[in-house]
């Protein structure tokens, strides 16, 4: 085989990049375990196994080499992101179905690694929340808030068998998320101050969840420092979310939550650093990244506040994924020595 120039290269690989993303998720996961118990580790394991299994199966069906693609870690990233977006106490098959859908349909039917137009994890999430809305609300109450706290074995029993310990109801161990609660209560015309006085809201945006989000920020800084992602998407996404929330909050503080609440609740920070920055489904141009992130920020807010779903990150991501080819076409950078005419 003839070798071609350049004969030297950076030791970077896709596998290593994806591994860094997984590594960056660890602080958030650790805090998750601290506040919500080890159930999340079960869903991460389930997601990982399903992701790798589905990936291998699809590669086999598509007649592609299996080993190099399994080693690229991209399936694990998809599985983990999905596992972190859905309730950890949900029945075991929920994460399995979601992950399998993400990998088989959203990733491989569109051509596998590098070719999927939609974020696999978010498309999987959308399918789950539309198909299984009840199971998707089984969020464990954060540490110290629930009436009862399950041990690890009891959590396992519930996830796999759907059996709760005697005298414990599902309501005693689960709780609506801060975003969900806000939406319901505002609907009942409760003043926002009163809602935020509830213990679930913690210091900023939610007992437990705000700390997990902080963990994701930590991971995000790691990704920025190691140049896995650029600043464009997180900064502009969070900036837009902050700005829109700020305008509404200033205009009507009784009905619209403060911008910091929007940052630290739901999947905003996970999305800003891990989901929207997925290179495959986000624009390749700098200007494009700015537009994409701004659009996602605006849509996230609109869906959260005016839409039917408690959180908007998943749908905002998917909607902006749709616009990526157009955004990229219209934001081509000026080529060296050219005036900047569009191709």
């Amino acid at each position: 085989m003839a070798l071609f120039s350049p004969f030297v290269s950076k030791p970077d690989t896709v596998s290593r990049i994806m591994f860094k993303v997984l590594l960056a998720l660890v602080p958030g996961i650790a805090l998750y375990v601290w506040y919500y118990g080890p159930a999340i580790l079960v869903s991460l394991t389930l997601a990982s196994l399903t992701a790798l299994g589905t990936e291998a199966l699809m590669l086999k069906l598509r007649n592609r080499p299996i080993a190099p693609f399994l080693k690229d870690n991209s399936a694990l990233v998809t599985g983990w992101l999905l596992a972190l977006s859905i309730p950890s106490l949900a029945p075991w098959w929920l994460i399995v179905v979601g992950t399998a859908f993400s990998i088989a349909i959203v990733k491989h039917l569109y051509g596998g690694l590098g070719n999927n137009p939609f974020s696999p994890a978010m498309a999987g999430f959308a399918v789950l929340i539309i198909s299984f809305p009840v199971q998707m609300t089984q969020w464990i109450s954060p540490h110290g808030l629930g009436a009862v706290e399950l041990g690890f074995l009891e959590q396992l029993e519930y996830i796999f068998l759907g059996v709760l310990p005697p005298n414990v109801s599902l309501d005693a161990i689960t709780m609506a998320t801060p975003l969900d609660t806000l939406k319901t209560r505002l609907h009942l015309e409760e003043p926002i101050k009163q809602i935020f006085a509830m213990p679930i809201y913690g210091r900023l945006a939610g007992q437990g969840s705000e700390m997990v989000s902080l963990g994701f920020v930590l991971g995000g800084f790691y990704l920025l420092a190691t140049r896995v992602i650029t600043w464009h998407i997180p900064v502009v996404f969070l900036g837009t979310l902050f700005a829109v929330a700020g305008i509404f909050h200033l205009a009507d503080p009784l009905h619209y939550a403060a911008p910091l609440f929007h940052w630290f609740s739901g999947a905003a920070l996970l999305g800003a650093f891990f989901i929207l920055t997925d290179p495959v489904t986000s624009p390749t141009t700098y200007k494009g990244k700015l537009i994409y992130a701004a659009g996602a920020g605006l849509l996230t807010y609109l869906i959260r506040v005016f839409g039917n779903f408690p959180d908007g990150v998943a749908f905002a991501t998917l909607l902006m994924n749709l616009c990526v080819p157009l955004i990229v076409l219209y934001t081509q950078p000026r080529v060296f020595g050219k005036k900047g005419e569009r191709p």
Binding site: M1, F4, R64, P65, P68, G111, N115
Partner: peptide
């Protein structure tokens, strides 16, 4: 056309 060791698309 460049030959590659791995079968891509």
């Amino acid at each position: 056309y460049p030959e590659q060791t791995l079968v891509l698309a």
